[in-house]
Design a protein around this nucleic acid. Sequence first.
DNA 1: TCGCGTGGGTTGGAAAAACAAACCCTCGCC
DNA 2: GGCGAGGGTTTGTTTTTCCAACCCACGCGA
Lengths: 156, 156
Amino acid sequence: MAATKDPRPCSIADALAVVGEKYSLLVLREVCLGNSRFDQLVRNIGAPRDVLATRLRRLVDAGLLTKRAYQDRPQRFEYRATQAGLDLEPVLMSLMAWGDRHLRGDDDRPMVIEHSCGNELLPVVTCAACGAEVRHEDLTAHPQAPGWTVKGPTAA
Amino acid sequence: MAATKDPRPCSIADALAVVGEKYSLLVLREVCLGNSRFDQLVRNIGAPRDVLATRLRRLVDAGLLTKRAYQDRPQRFEYRATQAGLDLEPVLMSLMAWGDRHLRGDDDRPMVIEHSCGNELLPVVTCAACGAEVRHEDLTAHPQAPGWTVKGPTAA
DNA sequence: TCGCGTGGGTTGGAAAAACAAACCCTCGCC
DNA sequence: GGCGAGGGTTTGTTTTTCCAACCCACGCGA
């Protein structure tokens, strides 16, 4: 996924250049769940083996995963998330919450996450400064680079 | 991007089936910023026009965008986010924050977002129940459907 | 010792997507 | 009457994806 052409310098585009290819985020999901082996990933994600191999190389190169042998003779490898990879988990959680809300009946959630506070996790993106939930209407963009257009009201 | 084969019922996969194709999230970014016209999108995203046209159709069909004429004679259209689309913006913001942190020197952020509280937005994913920041080590997955493997420690 | 199964991939060829450039149509304006 | 903007579609080429088959090292059981 080329960042090479995005005319807008943007960390969203940069992030997608790393994790935006098909299956990459599902790999992260699996690894965060603790499934670290090639076959488990193939089975749980449903990706073709060659594509998965490509994605894994990419994610390792990008520093989101590590590959290490969990046995020699025969050599077998496992993939684990680095801190950068783990830091994506909250993003995945909020994406999951969006999917639960907008793509499902909300009562057939295929996975419930428990938070250490004892409650079911309902992820909310908040502003670190004031603690309020982040909503579109409270945001104002300030591009730091030229070549941008930012405009008025954006809702339908 | 097929959800058709993902063997795991999962809202992350479902969400990616809708917005996981190349450029889709960048379209959302632009629309949330207020850039609603085909050309602006082409220029700001850097996508081929035909691909963009395909993405826009998909996003409209999925209910994340609306297409409506902003003038007749000649007919011209604009794309705006629905509530479902706007609800993805916090996810984009946390993805952007991840990119800022892990992909950049953190001091050359290409865009700063201002929150209505007056501070610069630093998005944090929190647990709605307890208000704490969501971290990997505080989460436990509870699959609601069969065919899952979930395992022990997941960090590198 | 022979064959079988498992884990972790690689290879080859066909099908689907992305890409770039050119094209089209409707109009407003000079 | 020609030019340019806006919003796409068409055409042909280049990449990716996909699938199935294959490979290799080993452990095991008969």
